[in-house]
């Protein structure tokens, strides 16, 4: 078996309950290196919970999440090591407000990967340049716009050299005029063959960027396929209903 055939992430019969509420009801999925997978579906259907199970921010009630061949929810797994390989971008950015832009990026590589401060800062500057924030390096996050914060959050995750990036509704909290600048960064990453899993309500973006679309509803993957299959020829009644309600 070559590397290409082995999934980067494999999810086996994933269940997740919050108290008596079962949010995920058995999800099986394989995500391969270099793939861009977008997850769509109505709110409350389990999209974000699924994504958050991929790096164990939510601990599955049962089932397995296997990342690079290792079961993440096994007891003896060094979760921190694996999480360093799984970048995540949040809806509300979650930038560290007490650290300036540069330190937001460098703190984890310096603390956890023992990268030298100069090296970490040099790389952080390169990353900031990539997203047009190099002149903000010494600023504190309160001076950044939402779009700038989200671009910072993306490069903060990239500084750990992840093998996959998870995006949890990365543009949902942004003012409309800032959506594009963030989507452009994600598109740029996808074009550089970064594996991306994106929970999004931006259907046009999902259609144009993705290799595969998952429609998650009622805690399961109702339908999956290429963007053309899902958006142009949906088979499942729930998918059709959902797509008829959203703007493309």
């Amino acid at each position: 078996m070559t590397d290409k055939d082995k999934p980067l992430i494999e999810v086996v019969d994933l269940h997740k309950s919050f108290g008596s509420l079962e949010v995920l009801k058995g999800i099986n999925e394989k995500i391969y290196k270099g793939e861009v997978v977008s997850i769509i579906g109505a709110s409350g259907g389990g999209k974000s919970t699924f994504l958050r199970c991929l790096n164990m921010l939510e601990v599955p009630t049962s089932g397995k999440v296997i990342f690079e061949g290792e079961e993440l929810n096994a007891k003896d797994t060094d979760l921190d090591k694996h999480r360093q390989k799984i970048g995540m971008v949040f809806q509300l950015f979650n930038i560290f407000p007490h650290l300036n832009v540069l330190d937001n990026i460098t703190i984890t590589p310096i603390l956890e990967k023992k990268i030298k401060k100069e090296d970490a800062e040099k790389e952080a500057m390169d990353l900031l340049k990539m997203v047009g924030l190099e002149d903000k390096a010494q600023e504190y996050p309160r001076k950044l716009s939402g779009g700038q914060k989200q671009r910072l959050a993306i490069v903060r995750a990239l500084a750990m050299h992840p093998d996959v990036m998870l995006f949890d509704e990365p543009t949902s909290a942004l003012d409309p005029e800032m959506v594009k600048e963030v989507l452009d960064v994600i598109r740029d990453l996808a074009e550089r063959d970064m594996t991306c899993v994106i929970v999004t309500h931006e259907m046009g973006f999902a259609k144009s960027i993705s290799d595969r679309i998952l429609f998650i509803d009622e805690g399961i993957i109702m339908e999956e396929g290429t963007p053309e299959q899902i958006f142009d020829h949906p088979q499942n009644a729930r998918t059709k209903e959902f797509l008829s309600k959203v703007l493309m």
Binding site: D80, M88, I95, F96, T108, E112, M160
Partner: peptide, 13 residues
Amino acid sequence: AGQTEAARSLGMS
């Protein structure tokens, strides 16, 4: 709580 989630997702102990 998002602060903790962000840090842990980066792989911070």
